[in-house]
Design a protein around this nucleic acid. Sequence first.
DNA 1: ATGTTTTACACAATCGATTGTGCGACACTG
DNA 2: CAGTGTCGCACAATCGATTGTGTAAAACAT
Lengths: 356, 356
Amino acid sequence: MPASTQLRSKNRKTTIYDLARISGTSPSTVSAVMNGSWRERRIRESTALNIKQVAAKHGYTPNLQARGLRKARSGMVGMIIPVHDNRFFASLGQSFENHARERDLCPVIASTLRDPVEEIRIVKTLISYAVEFLFIAGATNPDALSELCGAANLPHVFVDLPGKHAPSVTTNNYLGAELLTRKISAPNKARKNSSIKTKTYFLGGNASDHATAQRIAAFTAVISENGDKFEADQIISCGYSPDKAATAIKILCDRIGSLPSGLLLNSLTVFEGVMSHFVHLPAEAFEHSTIGCYDYDPFATFLKFPVHMVRQNSDEMIARAYELIERKVTDPLVIEVQAELIPPRTIHKGRYRELG
Amino acid sequence: MPASTQLRSKNRKTTIYDLARISGTSPSTVSAVMNGSWRERRIRESTALNIKQVAAKHGYTPNLQARGLRKARSGMVGMIIPVHDNRFFASLGQSFENHARERDLCPVIASTLRDPVEEIRIVKTLISYAVEFLFIAGATNPDALSELCGAANLPHVFVDLPGKHAPSVTTNNYLGAELLTRKISAPNKARKNSSIKTKTYFLGGNASDHATAQRIAAFTAVISENGDKFEADQIISCGYSPDKAATAIKILCDRIGSLPSGLLLNSLTVFEGVMSHFVHLPAEAFEHSTIGCYDYDPFATFLKFPVHMVRQNSDEMIARAYELIERKVTDPLVIEVQAELIPPRTIHKGRYRELG
DNA sequence: ATGTTTTACACAATCGATTGTGCGACACTG
DNA sequence: CAGTGTCGCACAATCGATTGTGTAAAACAT
């Protein structure tokens, strides 16, 4: 290994000053060549070619911090999500990243663990790194974040949970929950005259969070229009944790003596918790019960009993969010993206054939 | 809104020069106060307090690009993964991020979509941003990446798929697959004398990829030690896509006229593809078949038929990777982390009671 | 040969923070 | 009161790239 390589890897990275010295030109010329502006700066093609070769030989990569400092643009774009380890948010993140790369931007995705304090710290950090805009998904305190972004003059869009001081892209939670509720409560009508008749329940989430509130509103409306009278105990907002959900479903089943005829689970984590109770129930228990879940997991559509699921269109949500940024929208308008109802694909030959 | 605020948000962000002017001190003093080194620099407490107040009032956040440029440290740490939208990698990403935050570092997670070209571009980008170290998970071309990192003098650790020129943390794929294969092939012994007797199959992945190769090795060894003779057609490495897997399982079932007695699925995506075929099969088809899957999805453990799953310990893998970085290990040693066998939790009362 | 353009660069200021060094003012010592 | 320290800060160089401007040399025109 030549001494120069030794030195290079032991010392600092190669800079335009090194390349200038080696190629016998000036830093500004190297800069122009490396960033592609060399034609406008009337650099001879042979000079450019030579510099490019030297750069390649020395494994030069530009220092983007220096560039960012000078140009007051970092080339990074930020997104915050509650957790990576969740199908919906992971999917949002993936779309965010794909769209960023198409635009030659470097995506930075950070998770807040739904902690309001951490959330603020992270936004401050991203501001400090001079991200060019920010997508905020599932924020616990949207307006505080808007204020931070405002002070830093940072364009931002809320995704999933809307904010009051910036544009938002959300799922049409009302419509999604409406469709889902119809699916799981429709069978009740058919069974009106049968001996089995219990109510339809909504389980999970925090009633105070915007998305859940909308879903509950839709649920309530559909139940009421079915002619069934709606009672407050049909909403069990026990949070999102599997454990809480497991306890809640157990209490419910014990109280009503069976599974409810309809059950809308407000998230996959809630569903997961519920499953750990269902595992103790005999197969017959599900005969007269219809389950729905807001959010989607492929395997959950293959369970022993049919499950209707709602899949949010994360890619379109992100596409819309980019549109808002690129159209420089700052008004707090809300764009709603349609969610999709996914039918069960349970292995019950002849019963569910909605599968393509 | 006061004019000063107007100007601030219309123009550039507040800098230490602004704060210096406003507070009647110098930029270096402000700098010392803001980064906490003010005691060593013998700044009076009252001065520090005053500057802090001014900074807070003006919503000052340090320009980390400038700091990074000066200190030749960005405070960012990088990780690349194939995709976000995958339980295992999402989980790795989440752990990576949690550990980074504990150390006050800013995590940047990028996905490569398993594209070797994109992979290299992304590593170059992260090097340009001066990340302080890099975790590389599921690389398609580890050694090319090592070379890039070497040129930039960037510490890095391979995760999941090992590299030859840097330390690695992987799952003990051999042991995981061994345990899993035992589970799904054990019932065959019991059935030795019954009329039903087909072979155990391994489905999915690329035989050339390191993790899959190890799993296949373990699978082969266990099958052979069972006394059954192993045949080449028992390995069907059809890649990872659900579609390919669906086609492959259909062909297999058609050929042998039933489900195989044992089936090891090499990833969740493969499993997903297989499910779309299974959905057409009658319940009885699963009576004499045992399914296993390398990787874990909670809902997949609740399917109509029992599924044995392997869950990789992503958090420990990341913890080990941080250890390697912090101990400044650069030798290509490989640390293997134990994966966990997750028993089925199928709703078959009395048959599977391994559930806690 | 002289004046005018054009070519092909080099120079130097700049972005915002960090950090080694310098120095006036005050306290303290003898 | 001169000498020595200490305190509390300000100054200025620096990190690596960008970019407005200056300017020799070559090309061209007269």
